[in-house]
């Protein structure tokens, strides 16, 4: 029987194309337009060429923000991924406790960013916050508004608190999909706990873990609300990450040209890293498929 061809079905894609154009492509094109021009308001623009890109590339401020951002993402990945796996390995596999754990783990994920920021902002205060007050009482010098180390520690612990459960839930889903036969075979071979983890659980989780790492990297690389609410980017510029710096430049100072150039470079870095992650992920999948 011959298949009928109906090219008219392509028209069904049109609404999506229109939506993407309206919400993503056209704004991005506008940013490119802004990045080569200067404006003093009133929607009047003057040609500036590559000046803003040159300025941004030699701007210590941007490189510092990028560096801080990379360090932040690296630290939270280094904590959240192993911790998430550890939690997933120790969660009950079935029964009422499994459901209870799942609900408890999902709770932090449901809290909006600004609320998490506010919770930690109060929690860490030395005068009225439980954490800040306790640390102070223990004689530990902690003040996230004045001390750089305290500010970083607060922002990192807050992110770990908020997002580790995402990694844990994904890893748990990966673990649940492993058939019992694998564990039985390992038992017959008298495999150690480490060997079971290294040769059964970790390879079977690799797919979901890559997704977890990608999601956590992207989210942490774009982080704005939480540190903005807790530290406001301070003390000084100590926790001014890329998004915070960008918003300060674009909306605080209304430097549209430099902010647009900054945005494009930010976008390119994200695009590059996402592509690397995506390529690694699809190649891992393919290798898994060949096995």
């Amino acid at each position: 029987m011959e298949k009928t061809t109906n090219q008219k079905a392509w028209f069904l894609v049109l609404p999506v194309l229109a939506l993407v154009a309206f919400s993503a492509v056209i704004p991005l094109m506008t940013v490119v337009n802004y990045s080569v021009q200067d404006t003093f308001g009133n929607n009047q623009f003057f040609w500036a060429g590559l000046e803003w890109f040159r300025e941004m590339l030699s701007s210590e401020r941007m490189w510092n923000a990028l560096w801080r951002q990379l360090v932040f993402s690296a630290i939270i990945l280094a904590i959240e991924v192993p911790l998430g796996i550890f939690v997933a390995l120790n969660m009950p596999k079935r029964g009422v406790w499994a459901s209870t754990c799942l609900v408890l783990m999902a709770l932090p994920l449901l809290i909006p960013w600004n609320v998490v920021g506010t919770i930690w902002q109060i929690f860490g205060r030395v005068d009225i916050g439980l954490l800040g007050y306790t640390l102070e009482a223990l004689g530990i010098d902690y003040n996230y508004t004045q001390d750089i180390f305290s500010a970083w520690a607060t922002v990192i612990v807050m992110d770990v608190w908020h997002w580790t459960s995402l990694v844990a839930l994904l890893a748990y889903a990966g673990l649940q999909s492993i058939p019992d036969a694998y564990y039985q075979a390992a038992k017959i071979d008298q495999a150690s706990r480490w060997a079971v983890f290294r040769y059964i659980e970790l390879p079977k989780m690799s797919g979901v873990l890559m997704i977890a790492i990608l999601l956590r990297f992207m989210d942490s690389f774009m982080i704005y609300t939480e540190p903005f609410v807790v530290t406001g980017g301070g003390p000084g510029n100590a926790t001014t990450f890329l998004s915070i710096d960008l918003v300060k430049m674009a909306l605080g100072q209304f430097d549209l040209g430099p902010a647009a150039a900054f945005s494009i470079m930010y976008f390119l870095v994200i695009l590059l890293i996402s592509w690397v992650f995506y390529t690694v992920m699809t190649n891992l999948d393919r290798r898994e498929g060949h096995r």
Binding site: I26, M29, T30, V32, N33, Y34, V36, Q37, T39, N43, F45, W47
Partner: peptide
């Protein structure tokens, strides 16, 4: 389309 602040070089780039 004034708000998009088009210029000839950016138009050529996108084309």
């Amino acid at each position: 389309m004034d708000w998009m602040a088009w210029t000839t070089p950016t138009a050529i780039f996108f084309v």
